[in-house]
Simulated assay, not measured.
Amino acid sequence: MRRYELKDADWARLAPLLPGKVEDAGRSAADNRLFVNAVLWIARSGAPWRDLPERFGPWHSVYRRFRRWAQQGVWQRVFEAVQDPDLDWAMLDSTSVRAHQHAAGQKKATPPAEALGRSRGGFTSKLHAVVDALGNPLRLALTPGQQADCTVAADLLAGLAVSAVLADKAYDTNAVVAHISQAGAAVVVPSKRSRRTPRELDRNLYADRNKVERFFNRLKQYRRLATRHDKTAASFLAFAQCAATFVWLL
């Protein structure tokens, strides 16, 4: 077993979720395992596509297939399919990812369309996540680095049936608090100093929020996500979805 490659047990869980099976319409994909191992190698090593080892085949063919799956939502569907969440409560947070100079220069779209922006950390993207009570990822979103965390909270939490939502002060807005309350969940979010009447906070439960931070630490073990090299938001988010899938599997 080479480094960065899926074990037999993990592949057995993943294989039925991928397109190109014999019973699927269209061309079969007998090399799905080789292809997924190639994507995993790129994600973990952080290397450019051109440096993909020859054992995986022509780098450009692998890259084009990865892009095609990203644009067709395959990585998103696989990420959702592997989940077996503990929905006692959910935790919400974001992390900033510094963009490499190679991420700039996309000519067909303005930087906001590719989730790139200027923040105090420089030229960045912001990756948002909701995790379950065990710290496993449920949903991901990508925005420019300067965009406030609270702006995507409602979309990330939509339809989640949990007893409580844990988040830091960045999510203490009237809109987010109302959305959580209307969903029937407890609001475990510290009140900002500007609130005239601070909410009571279950500090024992709030201490569990470290699990979302630990998830981001695991995610950034994939070097392709520690620094953004991808020009397009679709490719970078697809790598995040791949890594989140592997968090469930590995």
Rank of each mutant, 00 (worst) to 15 (best):
A148W: 09
G159E: 08
D51F: 11
E213F: 01
K107Y: 09
D132G: 00
R65A: 06
A30R: 00
A15T: 04
D10M: 10
Q106K: 11
H128G: 12
A226T: 11
V97K: 02
D88A: 15
T232F: 06
D168K: 09
L134H: 14
A186H: 03
W49G: 06
P190H: 05
L201K: 12
W49E: 00
L127C: 07
Q101L: 15
A90S: 15
A243C: 14
V130T: 08
T245G: 02
F246E: 03
K231L: 02
A103Y: 13
S235H: 09
A226H: 12
Q101G: 11
R64M: 12
R218P: 07
G73F: 06
G117K: 07
G117I: 10
L18A: 06
W11N: 04
L166G: 09
D51A: 15
D31H: 02
V39N: 02
Q71D: 11
A178N: 10
D93Y: 14
A233R: 04
V39W: 05
R199N: 12
K169G: 11
A81F: 02
L92R: 12
H60D: 14
L219D: 05
T173S: 14
V82A: 03
W69T: 00
F215Y: 13
W89C: 10
A38H: 02
N204M: 07
G105R: 09
Q146A: 15
S235D: 07
Y222L: 05
A175S: 12
A185I: 07
N174E: 14
D208P: 01
V62L: 00
A103M: 10
P144A: 11
T227S: 12
H60F: 15
D8L: 01
L250Q: 08
S163Y: 01
W69Q: 03
A103T: 11
Q147G: 02
L116Y: 09
F56T: 06
R50I: 10
K107T: 11
P111Q: 08
L237P: 08
A38M: 03
N210L: 02
D149Y: 09
V187D: 10
P144M: 03
L157P: 00
G122F: 07
R193E: 13
A234V: 12
K7S: 14
W248M: 01
T245E: 02
Q71G: 06
A233T: 01
Q182D: 15
V22S: 11
A164S: 03
V152G: 03
V62M: 11
P16A: 00
K7T: 11
D155L: 03
R118G: 05
P198S: 11
R218Q: 13
F216C: 06
A186F: 05
T227Y: 14
E23Y: 13
G121T: 03
E114M: 13
N32V: 04
W89E: 07
D132A: 08
F56G: 01
T151A: 04
W59R: 09
A244I: 05
W248S: 01
D84V: 07
Q221A: 07
R3E: 07
N174K: 10
R120H: 12
P85I: 04
Y206I: 01
V97D: 09
W89R: 01
L205C: 09
T151R: 11
L52R: 03
D10E: 14
V97A: 05
W75H: 06
R196E: 14
L18H: 06
A170P: 09
A175D: 09
G145V: 08
S191E: 06
L127A: 02
I42S: 03
A226G: 13
D86T: 05
A104I: 10
A153I: 01
